[in-house]
């Protein structure tokens, strides 16, 4: 009976992890990796939570004091094998989750040395520490779509983002990127700490004054997604939003050639 319940719990938890979708659509190359991690964590979490909930409710009903009952419960002060068991099981689960998320982190490129843009840009970073987020590695190199990431310089200020494309000298209030192309953003803040977050990319990186940060990603799905500032930055923090427009390469090219060499501010 107990074994059957446990099997049902594990199967149910796995089913929930696979079939309950709590996330927005995924639109970058690391988003499916993230979703994989999320499904595993959701499965484990559901199993643990429902299991504990069931144990508590069962105990409260089964072992409640019935009217007229007196006396104490069983004088069990401990049970060493049982305690070793439930020290070992969470430790193993944690170890698994840790190793698994390390693997995910690695696949997202989190353990790669940071690079921004083309090799020529690296000399800028030699005298400045540049810290970056996930996706700063070589996700797209593995896909061998392009070894030349598209460099973008992001400037954040109260309460807007500005995107500068060094190649065409474009300044834009919206980020335009082509699908399948790795984008490498170097981000700096003019005033306070902001954060660049695109929920559909599953990526977030703080933009820190006095300390440039790098965020690399590869968009995969055309569409228009919100860019949200996620770090409290003042009264209009909630309104500090922009959009990233992911386009097919041809559409992007036409946007690019239309705006190239001219300074256009849409902000």
């Amino acid at each position: 009976m107990t074994i059957l319940l446990c099997i049902a719990l594990v199967l149910g938890g796995t089913w929930v992890g696979q079939h309950v979708n709590l996330l927005p659509i995924s639109a970058s190359s690391n988003a499916p990796v993230y979703d994989e991690l999320f499904r595993v964590l959701l499965s484990i979490g559901t199993i643990l939570f429902v299991g504990m909930l069931g144990l508590v409710i069962y105990s409260l009903i089964k072992f409640r004091r019935r009217p007229g009952q007196t006396g104490d419960g069983l004088a069990i002060e401990g049970n060493l094998p049982l305690e070793i068991f439930w020290t070992a099981v969470p430790a193993i689960v944690i170890l698994f989750v840790g190793l698994y998320s390390y693997d995910i982190y690695d696949r997202m490129g989190g353990m790669q040395p940071l690079q921004h843009g083309e090799h020529g840009h690296q000399k800028m970073s030699t005298n400045q520490r540049i810290w970056g987020g996930i996706g700063s590695g070589t996700v797209s190199q593995a896909e061998s779509k392009s070894n030349n990431p598209l460099p973008v310089e992001v400037t954040a200020m109260q309460f807007a983002f500005l995107f500068h494309y060094p190649k065409g000298n474009i300044i834009s209030g919206e980020l335009h990127v082509p699908t399948g192309q790795q984008v490498s953003m170097k981000m700096e803040s003019k005033d306070v700490i902001h954060a660049f977050w695109v929920p559909e990319f599953r990526l977030k990186q703080d933009i820190i004054p006095g300390q440039p940060t790098v965020l690399n990603f590869t968009p995969t799905k055309p569409g228009r997604y919100p860019i949200v500032c996620a770090e409290l930055c003042g009264p209009y923090h909630g309104g500090m939003r922009s959009a990233v427009v992911v386009e097919e390469p041809a559409e992007y090219e036409s946007w690019y050639s239309k705006n190239s060499k001219e300074i256009i501010s849409e902000a």
Partner: peptide, 25 residues
Amino acid sequence: SFIAVPTGIKFFNWVATLWGGRISL
């Protein structure tokens, strides 16, 4: 992550305290 291990022990111990008791609800 490893903080979850000692914390988990405490929760299992509480459930084990409930188990087999005469619980006043």
